[in-house]
Design a protein around this nucleic acid. Structure first.
Lengths: 178, 178
DNA sequence: TGCAATTATATCGGATTGATATATTTTCTT
DNA sequence: AAGAAAATATATCAATCCGATATAATTGCA
């Protein structure tokens, strides 16, 4: 499953320009997948070549045409084939956790601030989700929204209950280094 | 923070070959970061050029030299500089969640199996963590191990309590398509 | 009126993955 | 003890993807 497939997925929800697809990625798929213009625009070009999407271009003066993409029936089949495959393992990269892994090399105060900020940030995400979650049109989207909230909440709870382990560990590291 | 930085981090824990660094990524950093040979070997070459690691090569017959890398003091400073920066946002890619986002296009049975398998897989991870978690040498590593368990457990709980939302939604999709 | 934000397309270098090639040693199974 | 399988070990490559950058009109608002 690559960005091309994801673009097809977004287009099953309605016609869109490259810009709108990017927005959809941020607003509705941000929890599960990221994509940048550098991958979306080439993906749309290739999908067009392959006949999996069609493209209507509206001429505009002094800037590139506005292009609205639609998924074709061939595109729909391709997309279904893709999502029926066994999904690959999650890929997760967290610089936050890496930093904690090396907490013993940093001052305790830095670690404490890092955790404080992480908790705030996760709480902010939960709050913004909570306000929208109930309004979402489908059970499916409410489910995914709730999933995000549950995981973020678990993270906050764990950090609050166990940060002392890390701060004590970092403290020992700092003292040992003196 | 890139793979070069992560290689430096692993080398702060002791000298290692490229192969051993890869193993460390899998065994101790798997929760937070991934790296393949295709990025590790070039990273080590570049770090050697830059003087951030040193390399002792042991000649071997009929295959490439075995190379043991050590971090230099210049490498230690560079690594500290890196982890003192504000960590970038997590990057997460989940084909599983993407599939659920399009659950209405798939048979209910497929969704149910997908969730069943996901729960089993997460439980397997928790079990393998639990057996090792307590043995870990530092509070810091126990903390991170516990973090992983907490998040996986939250996922399992959420899936079990809310899967009906999704299965009902998929069911309606299937019926509508008939 | 002026300034910031949003809309909108597009490219490019550099980072990274996943597959592949190669070959020895160790461990397990029968 | 033979043979199979797994682990050890280095390395490269095409394809993919990200983040930054360039460009420019429009919209909202103070």
């Amino acid at each position: 499953m690559d960005i091309r497939t994801l673009c097809l997925g977004v287009l099953t929800m309605g016609d869109a320009s490259g810009y709108e697809i990017k927005k959809t990625f941020e607003e509705r798929l941000g929890l599960m997948f990221h994509a940048s213009y550098g991958s979306i625009y080439p993906a749309l070009n290739k999908l067009t070549e392959e006949g999996l999407v069609s493209c209507r271009a509206f001429a505009q003066e002094k800037r590139p045409d506005k292009k609205i993409y639609s998924i074709t029936s061939s595109g729909r089949y391709t997309f279904l084939d893709e999502i029926m495959k066994k999904p690959a393992a999650d890929r997760f990269r967290s610089e936050f956790l890496v930093t904690l892994m090396f907490a013993h090399l940093l001052p305790v105060s830095t670690i404490a601030e890092l955790i404080d900020e992480r908790i705030l940030e996760s709480q902010r995400k939960i709050d913004s989700m909570s306000s929208d979650c109930a309004d979402l049109p489908t059970d499916r989207e409410q489910f995914l929204c709730g999933y995000g909230r549950a995981v973020y909440q678990a993270e906050i709870d764990y950090l609050q209950e166990n940060r002392h382990l890390l701060e004590a560990d970092a403290l020992m590291g700092t003292r040992a280094a003196e």
